[in-house]
Design a binder for these strands. Structure first.
Length: 172
DNA sequence: GCTATTTGACCGCC
DNA sequence: GGCGGTCAAATAGC
């Protein structure tokens, strides 16, 4: 789960190093807020099947629940962008979202392992399943403590220095 | 003009 | 038949 940054009247799904294109939104039974559906922007270029669903929590609209489906193959393609920030955000999501139960660990997208030299992705959900320990609890704590009142926490969670990945699609 | 977003309609599964 | 997920036309922004 992530704090849901808001800019003006619009909302932004958490940046996770990939570029997503929204393709649908649905009211979900029992949920106060609609679920948004995103797919990888490079789906057409690289037939990347990666998708994600963004669902706001009923009791805390400032927190979004992000579910990843499929894996990114766009960065595996020879012609695809090869560099992007470490999926720290993705990692946190996987370890915290309640929807992880719907995704068997062995089916988790290998994409989350990339760049981290993990390879030990067979363990259960843990903060170190990629070989790197992240202060998930601290981040979550920061989220819940300040997520609803301050946008500054976002900078501590999603470092500005984490340069936005620029798709280098025009490599030739 | 191209690309992304919105949104109603459609489809498959339970 | 209801629900979740996806499609595709219309629209907006750059």
């Amino acid at each position: 789960m992530f704090p849901a940054p808001q800019i003006g009247n619009t909302e932004m799904p958490p940046e996770d190093g990939f570029t997503w294109r929204k393709y649908g939104q649905k009211e979900i039974l029992g949920r106060k807020y609609p679920r948004s559906y995103y797919r990888c922007t490079h789906q057409k270029l690289y037939l990347c099947p990666a998708k994600k669903q963004v669902q706001r929590l009923d009791n805390n609209p400032n927190i979004v629940e992000v579910t990843y489906r499929g894996e990114h193959i766009c960065h595996k393609s020879l012609t695809a962008p090869l560099s992007y920030p470490p999926p720290q955000n993705l990692l946190v999501n996987i370890n915290t979202t309640s929807t992880q139960a719907t995704i068997p660990p062995e089916a988790w997208p290998p994409a989350v392992n990339l760049g981290l030299g993990g390879g030990n992705g067979n363990g259960g959900p843990s903060t170190s399943r990629f070989g790197i320990d992240y202060p998930v609890a601290d981040m979550a704590d920061a989220m819940f403590n300040s997520g609803s009142s301050s946008g500054n926490s976002m900078e501590s969670l999603f470092h500005p220095s984490e340069d936005k990945w620029e798709p280098d699609e025009k490599i030739n």
